[in-house]
Design a binder for these strands. Structure first.
Ligand SMILES: [Mn+2]
Ligand SMILES: [Mn+2]
Ligand SMILES: [Mn+2]
Ligand SMILES: [Mn+2]
Lengths: 239, 239
DNA sequence: ACAAATTTTTAGATATGTCTAAAAATTTGT
DNA sequence: ACAAATTTTTAGACATATCTAAAAATTTGT
């Protein structure tokens, strides 16, 4: 009886030790979603927020959260939302790293434009191979930012701090450089292409209209008027 | 009643027209397996052969075959095995094309060796994006063969005919060039690396031993003896 | 404080893909 | 030709991931 118990414990430890750590694409997407919601939030992530982000139902989220909690990837208390554990955070950052490296690859070498890369990167980010990620990073010459200006975590998971000034907060007569986009929707990116606004563009704020928070800016000699909706989605750095 | 029937038929046609054509990775792997077994066979592919290739059970294969048959990707008659339809064949070839293009990419740009690429290509081949495949092809400068010497189907699904002479069938005193490997297992590829046998290597058959079908060959000035197991897995072209 | 609104969880279904065991059909050997 | 061996299919489970509807818990508003 006692011998049997020891045997059982030994088997449990062994299965823990050899536990398959490979996650499904779905599990990876949940971790990524929780991570990205956490970034703009200093409390536990709600079931509904995850459901909305992943375009699924709250009930499905509850199920998955339980599974991730079992695997020690999230801390979860019923009705209290979730937070990633260190283990969960590490995995989320790895996937984000892969996503952004692939986006750089697609733009740099395969003639994709910045509004075409996301969908494909969503698939590529789940390919499992440490060597692949490392070599891709080397091949791309260790890029620090993706085509949307988002920082690429390094091999150890360290992420450069993202510029957090929005164009909307820049004062009249002040100049700045476009560092990134907050919204990566095709429609926004195509609007920017059209307005000739790119990463690195120098923008001069000519005039701010208090009534609707729109602003008139000057970019490469040309002047144009942009709505608040646009200016609050552009990360910039003051010059 | 009759009006209702018409409505129903209309809905059916519509759902056929808009039917999601995206296949799961599993479905794609079945098509690829059936295709590759068909190549070395001029009759219908057996349930067991597929099961063995995919390391699954015959009963699972029967289930999947029914599903693929529903989708008109295979012709299937109970107990008679399956054959790909034109539609099924096209999809299989597309996946093989992607697999081999990715293998070229990994070797050419990411410092993978020919024994490391297969596992990763098995994942990459399922990424869905026509543009990705086209641009990758262009970027690689339209390669015709993968790192194992296998032909890469072109955009229209056309495949160059594979060299079908094996080194084992070459006569004494005859020289030939290594064109491909029949077996792509790590152990075989590593053996070849060790023996300094690569695609393009010029091989001179010095002597054939009738007893065990081994042969002594000369390659880059060095002589070595290789077993029948080796020589019958090397595609060559007589000089 | 407590009723109403909202969020979250549970219960029960469905769809995909897998498995084992048993039944059915086909092929093989004499 | 027909019994035995082999192959294939069916039946019934199970695991993952999803959904709807209803129940339970929490939060909000007065
Ligand atoms: Mn993206
Ligand atoms: Mn991005
Ligand atoms: Mn391969
Ligand atoms: Mn290959």
């Amino acid at each position: 009886m006692s011998k049997n118990l020891f045997l059982q414990i030994e088997i449990m430890s062994l299965s823990l030790y050899f536990m398959k750590t490979e996650l499904s694409q779905t599990e990876e997407n949940y971790l990524k979603a929780i991570f990205s919601i956490s970034l703009s939030l200093n409390k536990a992530v709600s079931t509904n927020a995850i459901a909305e982000k992943l375009k699924t139902k709250a009930s499905s989220v509850t199920d998955m959260i339980k599974k991730l909690s079992e695997k020690n990837l999230v801390d979860y208390k019923k009705y209290q939302g979730v937070l990633l554990t260190e283990k969960g955070k590490k995995i989320a950052v790895k996937i984000i790293r892969k996503h952004r490296l692939w986006e750089v690859f697609l733009v740099k070498y395969l003639d994709f434009s910045w509004d075409e890369v996301h969908e494909v990167a969503e698939q590529l980010e789940h390919v499992k191979s440490t060597k692949l990620t490392q070599e891709l990073d080397r091949y791309l010459e260790y890029p620090t930012h993706d085509p949307h200006g988002d920082p690429i975590p390094d091999e150890n998971g360290k992420i450069a701090h993202h510029s957090d000034t929005m164009l909307s907060s820049i004062k009249e007569k002040q100049a700045c450089i476009v560092m990134g986009v907050k919204d990566s929707s095709t429609s926004f990116l195509k609007y920017l292409d059209n307005a000739n606004i790119k990463l690195g563009s120098v923008v001069n704020v000519i005039e701010k209209v208090a009534f609707d928070d729109s602003m008139r800016i000057e970019i490469q000699g040309a002047q144009l008027s942009i709505s608040h909706q646009i200016s609050k989605n552009l990360f910039v750095k003051k010059i």
